[in-house]
């Protein structure tokens, strides 16, 4: 509770660094063939697969038994207007970051939409999504996509407990995003922590349908999530028109 803003950021960075180091170590161990893991096939997109699968094994029970039930309770029991207000509130912050990333990529019209949304939603005190009702589409640009638009490849796939699927490129974007969160400026620690928690519940609630679908459709969840994530990101970076994937097997 006594952690200051800098403390938190430092903690995030330390965790990220530790994570990267572990990932590299696991990757090297794999390449030497001495990891002792069940040795899944290390593919080009997922060279750290044994390590990632271990992370997934940590994440899955926490998600299934804690995060998902909380998110489901939120959806089932919290009045709909409150849910919408919370999702609009956090949505404003995402609109701001989407505008910034639109600008970084030279997507002026998209950035204009995002800034327009922010301006319009001020009139709903940031709690009512007037912009969507007015037909201003919600943007979805983020730092990972900006790097992608700049030509930086995804890099190896990573699975991070509590956060989920990402890659070296997108994960770097997430760290920048966490660094730049406006809540880092808040000095009231209990308030700030509540906001982090609420934001997490809101995010997880939005992914409930997707995780239900994975439960029904997947033979192996890890593989299914990985390919869905990579396809989705490729699609977003190319604005809905990704190059046709080659019909090769890996």
């Amino acid at each position: 509770m006594t952690l200051g803003t800098r403390g938190f950021v430092a903690r995030v960075l330390r965790a990220a660094t530790a994570f990267a180091v572990c990932a590299l170590a696991a990757g090297c161990a794999t390449m030497q063939g001495g990891a002792g893991a069940p040795a899944p096939f290390a593919s080009k997109v997922d060279p750290f697969e044994p390590f990632n699968r271990a992370m997934y094994a940590i994440h899955e029970p926490i998600d299934r038994n804690v995060m998902r039930p909380i998110a489901q309770a939120w959806v089932d029991h919290v009045p709909r207007p409150v849910q919408l207000a919370v999702s609009t509130l956090f949505g404003n912050i995402e609109d701001g970051f989407s505008a910034l990333n639109g600008l970084l990529q030279g997507k002026w019209d998209k950035a204009g939409n995002d800034l327009g949304r922010l301006t319009v939603n001020v009139w709903g005190f940031g709690l009512i999504d007037i912009a969507t009702d007015a037909g201003i589409p919600k943007g979805d640009e983020d730092f990972g996509q900006t790097f992608g638009a700049w030509g930086i490849p995804q890099g190896p796939y990573l699975f991070v407990p509590l956060i989920g699927p990402t890659t070296v490129r997108d994960g770097t974007g997430l760290v920048i995003r966490a660094y730049a969160s406006p809540f880092n400026l808040v000095n009231d620690i209990p308030f700030r922590n509540s906001m982090w928690g609420l934001g997490a519940v809101n995010l997880r609630a939005q992914a409930l349908e997707a995780s239900d679908l994975v439960d029904r459709a997947a033979i192996d969840r890890y593989t299914f999530i990985r390919r869905s994530y990579l396809q989705r990101r490729e699609y977003l970076v190319h604005e809905g028109n990704p190059p046709k994937p080659k019909d090769d097997d890996e």
């Binding site: 997947a218 033979i219 593989t223 299914f224 390919r227 396809q231 490729e234 699609y235 809905g240």
Partner: peptide
């Protein structure tokens, strides 16, 4: 939303065939 069903299952099928052959995939 950019996620192709067939592409997703290509990874899944591939993995099962690699581990247990076509019969392994059928069993899974």
């Amino acid at each position: 939303g950019g996620v192709s069903l067939v592409t997703n299952y290509r990874d899944e099928f591939n993995e099962q065939v690699r581990a247990g052959g076509v019969d392994g995939l059928l069993a899974a």
